[in-house]
Structures are given as structure tokens and as C-alpha cells.
């Protein structure tokens, strides 16, 4: 709560900057129109005009807010124009990709920790795999999977999975290796089997690392789902709204989709944060 005032100040400053930028960027169009109508604009008329254009270069925050209100609360959820419907499409791909990616990540991490060959051969490639800009291949993955008859949710989820497994592998390898030699020796004096060491010592002590990497993985997964929606011809989803908006110059629509995506990311990450707090508290670690 100590940070509340500074954060609010910064947010207010950003909003003020946004309004000012809207005036500056949209002024050309406003002057243009005034000239054609044969009138001259004084300052207050200019400001009023730049904050209320139909297809502004930069829509003012209240225009975006109105658009979001209109497309979430006022529209039926089943409507193709409802942002909630599009968010749902994106979120389902994000969640599926996130679950797949986390499972793959945990599996790889267990293999890497327990198998020396995997540690030496797979780990460098896991790191190298992330220097490949996977988002660049997203269109190809979608088209190829479509060609073999897989379409809909899964191709997007695969891209999300690829983006989200990496933070989980790195975090879990660190986490599963976090018990120190003394704790491992203690397990040995108790004659614990490998499975018992895993379930009772390694897995519990990796939990803080797992949750931290899951937060990163969730954010990456959403990015993957949004980019995965771009090449499918803008059918549904927040990415499709972005693409359609950019085709038709509907800036207000782009910005509202963007804000929705931001809210979705924030909500999903906050959800994991909540799970983290509850779990760690019950485990007595926080």
C-alpha cells in the first residue's frame, strides 16, 4: 500500500500523456476537416474534435473505454461483435497451450535432473530453441497443421505451448536441484527410495520456482495465442480483432482489443499469483 500513491501518480501521468498525444496526433485531420468546412478552429474546439474522431490516429482513453463498454456489457456474449466472445476464444487457446507447455516443461525438467545424458544433450537445445523466433513460424505451423486436418484450437495452443514450456523447464530444473546436499543426505539416511525423494523433497522444494516460471509462461502463452490467430484469416479471437482493425483502419477497435488482451494477461497472471500464495501458505513456505 506504500506504493499506491506513486503508482497512481505514474498512471495519471501516463493518462495525461495519452490525452496530450491524442490532441497532437489527431490535430492534422481536425485542421484538414475544418479547412474544408471553411471554418477555423480555436483551441478548445480543436481539443474537443481530436478527442471525438471516428477513425483517429490515436483514440482518446474515454473513446476506448466507451468501445469496451459497448462491446462487453451491451452486446450479447454469443454475438460475433462481443469482445467477451473473442477474449474467450483467445483464452481457451492460451489455457490449453499453457497446460500443455507446463506439462512438457515439468516432464523435461524431471528428465534433465534425473538423467545425465538428457542434461548434457537436451539442455543446450532447450536454450537454443528460444533464440528461434517461433512467432515467425506461427503462420507456417497453422497452415501445415490445417493441411493435415488439424484446425481450430490446437494449432494456436501448440504455438502457446512452444513459448510457455521454456520458462517452466528452466525454473523447474533450478527448483528440483534446489535441495542442498545435507537434505539429500538426510533422505538417504532414512533409506528413502528415488520416488520418495522426488515426492517428499525435490518436488515440494521446487514449488516457489514453479509458480514464478508459470507466471512468465502464462504471459508468453497469451502472446502465442494472439499471434497464432493472425494467419487464420481473422476468424475469431483478440488477434483476429487486431488484424481486422488494422485492415479497416478501425483504431478504436484495435485499442479496445489491446486493452482487453492486457486485462486478460493481468487476470491470468494474478490467478496464478493467488494459487501461489495459497499453496505456499499451506506448505508453510510463505
Amino acid at each position: 500500500m506504500r506504493n499506491l500513491l506513486p503508482v497512481l501518480t505514474v498512471v495519471a501521468a501516463l493518462l495525461a500523456l495519452w490525452y496530450a498525444a491524442a490532441v497532437w496526433l489527431n490535430a492534422d485531420w481536425a485542421y484538414d476537416r475544418a479547412q474544408r468546412a471553411g471554418t477555423t478552429l480555436n483551441f478548445s474546439a480543436l481539443v474537443a474534435d481530436t478527442w471525438a474522431q471516428d477513425k483517429p490516429k490515436l483514440p482518446a482513453p474515454h473513446q476506448v473505454a466507451t468501445e469496451i463498454w459497448n462491446t462487453t456489457v451491451e452486446k450479447k456474449i454469443t454475438s460475433k461483435r462481443s469482445l467477451i466472445y473473442h477474449s474467450w476464444v483467445t483464452m481457451s487457446a492460451t489455457l490449453l497451450g499453457f497446460i500443455l507447455g507446463t506439462a512438457l516443461g515439468i516432464g523435461l525438467a524431471i528428465g534433465i535432473v534425473y538423467n545425465r545424458v538428457m542434461d548434457m544433450s537436451v539442455m543446450p537445445w532447450v536454450i537454443a530453441s528460444q533464440t528461434i523466433p517461433i512467432l515467425a513460424i506461427a503462420p507456417m505451423i497453422i497452415v501445415v497443421l490445417n493441411a493435415v486436418g488439424i484446425s481450430g484450437l490446437l494449432p494456436k495452443a501448440i504455438i502457446s505451448m512452444y513459448l510457455s514450456f521454456f520458462p517452466v523447464v528452466v525454473g523447474m530444473v533450478k527448483g528440483l536441484r534446489s535441495p542442498d546436499q545435507m537434505q539429500l543426505d538426510q533422505m538417504r539416511t532414512w533409506n528413502a527410495s528415488a520416488a520418495q525423494t522426488f515426492w517428499r523433497l525435490r518436488l515440494p522444494s521446487s514449488m516457489p520456482y514453479l509458480f514464478t516460471s508459470m507466471k512468465i509462461a502464462m504471459a508468453a502463452s497469451l502472446v502465442g495465442a494472439i499471434v497464432g490467430e493472425l494467419p487464420t484469416g481473422a476468424v475469431a479471437g483478440l488477434g483476429a480483432r487486431l488484424l481486422a482493425g488494422s485492415y479497416y483502419g478501425q483504431t478504436i477497435q484495435i485499442w479496445s482489443a489491446l486493452i482487453m488482451a492486457a486485462a486478460l494477461a493481468a487476470a491470468l497472471v494474478a490467478l496464478i499469483g493467488l494459487a501461489q500464495r495459497i499453496t505456499l501458505k499451506r506448505m508453510g513456505m510463505a
Partner: peptide
């Protein structure tokens, strides 16, 4: 943590 890439268009 936001999907900044959406700013691209």
C-alpha cells in the same frame, strides 16, 4: 508482462 506485440498494427 503484457502482449505488447499487439501494438504492432
Amino acid at each position: 508482462a503484457l502482449p505488447i506485440i499487439g501494438m504492432a498494427p
